[in-house]
Write a protein that binds this DNA or RNA. Structure first.
Length: 724
DNA sequence: ACTGTTCGATTTTTT
DNA sequence: ATCGAACAGT
């Protein structure tokens, strides 16, 4: 026992030793929370003599699950495989494969990804004779997903909304559910919902898991949504030994349904909750921590806490005022080069940004400067067309009813199945009341062209050949289908410039399948894991600078971090979000995002903003981010671009440039001249042309749409505009 | 069924 | 500016 809590601070020890009853661990960034969870589980096993299979640990990402598995394996060894360490979704699949037949589903169900969801919605709209223009598939899908996560079924939505847009949504929702059931597919939300449904209908099944999971852990608890909360509440109801680990300051996914109130509700819904704060940070030096603390303390709605570090000192935070985005990127390239010269490695360095499009300029410059980089969350391997095609074949193989996957590949490679042929097939299916897959078995009766019949028979034979998975390893199945289906031939004959790399991707897929099959040669498990996987999972061992959105960087740490584009309207971002959560909440989430970004850095932090920036093809001017202003000045080492100082000389009589943005709290009516003081959409008035709205600002010109005179381009210097 | 062209959107996205 | 999806024409 002493070993397990050796080198732990008092609060960490308390978190590990408090095993009975509900426990809430509020773990600040870099406070060693993963270590605490793993040690706690080890403690349960070694000291409390808890069986491995009575322990459950839930994470959000596959990556976190994998990491936790490895760490626990290192302490506990072989028997650690009996601990359920899962993401919410993989845990649910595991339960559903066992019991979903009770709900009338085939246990071989396959899992939809979001692009497939969208195409289903489109299809349904078409069948119901609604136009995609009037009813945007994306928003419908979002409402359906939100409804599901609020545990509202199609009929609940239908009852609540009998008119207008929501009525259509309800109709689509209902059709969507039917379609999923018919095809024996579940979407991501379903995985959780069906488990709850199962537990509610069959208390004896719930009891199995309640009895089994005597000790439950939930990581990244601040990101749970209502359904997930409900699920863990149900599971923990019997033994009441539930340990949640989270940090309200790092909740950055509320726009995705994460419910920060779950932290507050936990203390209400469970009795006698023990709360432990982990506030000692082992990651960053105290300058970086002070900066992070001084930013986050501007949030009102949070548990008050202050991270501290024994790692005193450190160098000041570098703040670079760039002229434009190019200048910003050049500065970073320069800095990276000199950092590398002084002994840092590329992989110690990360560049973080608020939105993906901000990576473009950076990429270009890193490329021209021959600085190796990798982008987290760029085009995902599993999203690639050829990979998805092959996996669709596998989906059909394990789930013959998965018509969606079958449709995807029925004409890839070409088998002469266009719209006409499909209609004939559908016709046959309707008359004979059979599935598309079964139709393939009798395809000669459908009345297609000779070649199509032959090709589809061959397709059917391919499926049948590999349908008894026991005779083949997974990689053999994939490779076999790849060759037998004619996919390989198609790529070989293709003149497409990408076909080469497509073939490489397939071979990568086969290689990884081979590795998988050596551990577990179960094609169903394989396809499940692939459906639940995202590619940030595979770690990249290259020595390269990391480019990432701040969201995707959560949970990671780097010696040196650059945060770019710290400008109002970008970060914090202007959000014309469709939900009506209030401004305050949105701003606080932006601030949490800033907090997450800053706390990724261990030793060196570089911030930058640009005076002007190309956005969507236009030059825009944004004020420096409020988050920079929230950092005490004495922590900052400021640098200004030379280009910027020459700009300032031109406007030397206007040192006190006031930028104006949507979010500036104190916008004063002010007479402005010469300086670049306007933002797009600002209302202005002009002596001669009267009132208008700023449409664009390019270099020293401003384009304004005047109410009476229409669009005019004026020189900023002489325009003499007055801001309304 | 394939190809070229226009039009439109464009924050984040653990599963 | 840029990428993709929708649409129209061959």
């Amino acid at each position: 026992m002493t070993k397990l809590i050796e080198n732990m601070n008092e609060n960490q020890k308390k978190a590990i030793l408090t095993t009975e009853g509900p426990l809430m661990i509020i773990a600040g960034a870099g406070s060693g929370k993963t270590r605490v969870i793993t040690q706690r589980i080890a403690y349960l096993i070694y000291e409390k003599k808890v069986y491995e299979n009575n322990i459950l640990a839930i994470t959000f990402t596959n990556k976190a699950a994998k990491e936790m598995k490895e760490r626990i394996y290192n302490i506990v060894g072989e028997t650690s495989k009996y601990i359920w360490i899962n993401t919410f979704h993989s845990m649910c699949v595991r339960i559903l494969r066992e019991h979903i037949e009770n709900l009338g589903y085939n246990k071989n169900f396959t899992i939809l990804d979001s692009s497939e969801q969208k195409s289903i919605i489109k299809n349904i709209l078409k069948n119901l004779n609604y136009s995609e223009n009037d009813y945007e598939p994306k928003s419908i899908l979002k409402i359906i997903s939100n409804s599901k996560n609020e545990y509202k079924k199609a009929k609940d939505v239908a009852e609540a909304s009998r008119f207008g847009f929501m009525k259509v949504v309800a109709e689509v929702y209902s059709e969507y559910e039917k379609y999923l059931k018919k095809n024996a597919v579940l979407d991501f939300d379903d995985l959780l919902i069906k488990v709850i449904e199962l537990f509610e209908k069959y208390p004896e099944i719930l009891a199995i898991y309640q009895n089994k999971f005597k000790y439950i852990h939930v990581d990244e608890y601040q990101d749970t949504n209502l359904i997930q909360y409900k699920l863990i509440t149900m599971l923990a109801a019997l033994h009441n030994n539930i340990c949640i680990v989270g940090d309200d300051d790092q909740s950055i996914y509320s726009w995705r349904g994460a419910c920060i109130d779950n932290i507050k509700n936990f203390e209400k819904d469970f009795k006698n909750v023990e709360v432990v704060f982990l506030d000692q940070n082992y990651r960053s030096n105290s300058i970086i921590l002070t900066a992070a603390n001084s930013v986050i303390k501007n949030n009102v709605d949070r548990k008050d806490k202050n991270l501290w570090s024994e790692n005193k000192g450190g160098s000041k935070i570098n703040l670079y005022h760039a002229f434009n985005d190019l200048d910003e990127a050049e500065n970073i390239s320069r800095k990276i080069k000199s950092l590398v010269k002084t002994g840092k490695e590329y992989k110690d360095i990360a560049i973080l940004y608020r939105a993906n499009y901000l990576s473009r300029t950076l990429e270009n410059l890193l490329l021209t400067n021959s600085i190796p980089y990798k982008i987290i969350g760029s085009l995902k391997f599993l999203q690639r067309q050829e990979v998805k095609d092959l996996l669709s074949y596998i989906n059909v193989l394990v789930n013959n009813n998965d018509e969606l996957s079958l449709r995807r590949i029925i004409n890839v490679p070409r088998r002469g199945i266009g719209q006409g042929a499909l209609e004939k097939i559908e016709n046959y299916m309707a008359i004979n009341n059979t599935t598309m897959y079964n139709t393939l078995a009798n395809i000669e009766k459908v009345g297609l062209s000779k070649k199509s019949v032959k090709d589809l028979q061959s397709l059917y034979n391919t499926f049948e050949k590999y349908s008894d998975g026991d005779n083949f390893s997974i990689d053999q199945i994939i490779m076999g289908i790849y060759v037998d289906s004619g996919y390989e031939e198609m790529l070989k004959n293709s003149k497409d410039e990408y076909s080469e790399s497509r073939m490489e991707n397939i071979s990568e897929l086969v290689t990884s399948a081979k590795e998988y099959s050596e551990i577990n040669n179960n094609i169903m498990d394989y396809i499940t894991e692939m459906s639940l996987a995202s590619d940030s999972d595979d770690e990249n061992l290259d020595n390269a600078v990391t480019l990432s959105t701040i969201h995707a960087s959560k949970g990671l740490e780097y010696d040196t971090v650059f945060i770019v584009a710290l400008e109002e309207n970008i970060f914090p971002s202007v959000m014309n979000s469709d939900d009506l959560t209030d401004e305050q909440n949105k701003m606080e989430e932006e601030r949490r995002l800033a907090y997450v970004a800053i706390t990724r850095a261990k030793n060196n932090l570089y911030l930058s903003n640009a005076n002007r920036r190309m956005q969507f093809g236009n030059t825009k001017f944004n004020e420096i981010s409020r988050f920079i202003k929230e950092i005490p000045e004495d922590l900052l080492l400021e640098e200004r671009s030379l280009q910027l100082s020459s700009l300032n000389k031109i406007n030397s009589d206007n040192n006190n440039i006031t930028y104006i943005s949507k979010y500036s709290p104190k916008i004063k009516e002010k007479k402005l001249s010469k300086a670049y003081n306007f933002n797009i959409y600002d209302k202005v008035s002009h002596k001669k042309f009267g009132k208008g709205i700023v449409k664009n600002i390019i270099e020293d010109s401003i384009i304004i749409k005047f109410e009476e005179y229409g669009e005019k381009t004026l020189l900023l210097e002489y325009a003499n505009l007055i801001k309304e």
